[in-house]
């Protein structure tokens, strides 16, 4: 019996993202030694744990960037781990968004083009993609920075541009890996505040990897990864 059925039986909504006993090694180094996890739609889950515990690896597995050696990853009931690279790329493009610590903006592109990138990759026309991208600048307090290149943005601004890019295609799941990791407390808090309010508005599910409790406190619940193990099958409640 799968976890999603169990959830159905219990009368809870079906999880949108699940990991069942996911294990992954890099060569001889085990990075994940059994992760069990389920998220319901609209939930914000903080993945915590000391550095090297495997939290980022767990996120990469959930997002279909890495494939676990054993175990299953399901998105909306579909196996992600058995998909081909092409399919997973499309899944990432159409259903997932990403915000990472740094180095994610394409330096040659302007801020608005960076935001429009997922839409362009999805085949949207240039003008439509840019219009959609620009709509994100005002709510994220980025007005006036549309034409800047990534090198001309401050850390907080770059991170907000990355957030806009992660959200522009209205993904069902946003993956955020230490999104405030390179920012000071106040800037980090602003980014988190924008991230949470935007995802709540859209009903986006968020997987938030962080080692900071104050960042994790923005989530609905947390799961702690220790020595590559994580266990949090009981999907939490969604805060309204």
């Amino acid at each position: 019996m799968s976890a999603s059925q169990a959830a159905d039986d219990a009368g809870q909504p079906a999880p949108i993202l699940e990991a069942h006993d996911a294990q992954l090694s890099f060569g001889v180094t085990p990075a994940l030694r059994g992760a069990n996890l389920a998220l319901v739609r609209g939930e914000i889950l903080a993945v915590m744990g000391p550095s090297g515990s495997g939290k980022s690896t767990l996120l990469y597995c959930l997002a279909g960037i890495l494939t676990p050696d054993t175990g299953e990853i399901l998105f909306d009931g579909q196996r992600v781990d058995t998909m081909g690279e092409q399919e997973r790329s499309r899944l990432r493009r159409d259903h997932f968004g990403f915000v990472f610590q740094f180095g994610q903006l394409v330096p040659e592109l302007t801020a608005e083009e960076n935001v429009a990138l997922p839409l362009l990759l999805g085949g949207a026309s240039r003008s439509r993609a840019l219009d959609a991208a620009r709509a994100w600048f005002e709510p994220l307090s980025l007005d006036g920075l549309e034409r800047r290149r990534s090198g001309e943005l401050s850390g907080g601004q770059a991170q907000r541009v990355a957030l806009a890019r992660g959200l522009v295609s209205r993904p069902e799941v946003l993956f955020a890996d230490e999104p405030t990791g390179s920012l000071d407390s106040l800037t980090g808090e602003q980014v988190m505040e924008l991230l949470v309010s935007a995802t709540r508005r859209q009903g986006t599910t968020v997987v938030l990897v962080t080692h900071e409790a104050r960042v994790a406190a923005y989530a609905d619940r947390e799961v702690v990864v220790r020595d590559g193990k994580a266990n949090s099958l009981s999907a939490g409640r969604v805060r309204s």
């Binding site: 968004g97 990403f98 990472f100 040659e108």
Partner: peptide, 19 residues
């Protein structure tokens, strides 16, 4: 290296290997 970094960023937001 610079290109690799940029293409990795593209891949992250969902560019397929073909793209």
């Amino acid at each position: 290296a610079r290109r690799e970094q940029r293409f990795a960023a593209l891949r992250l937001v969902g560019a397929t290997p073909r793209q």
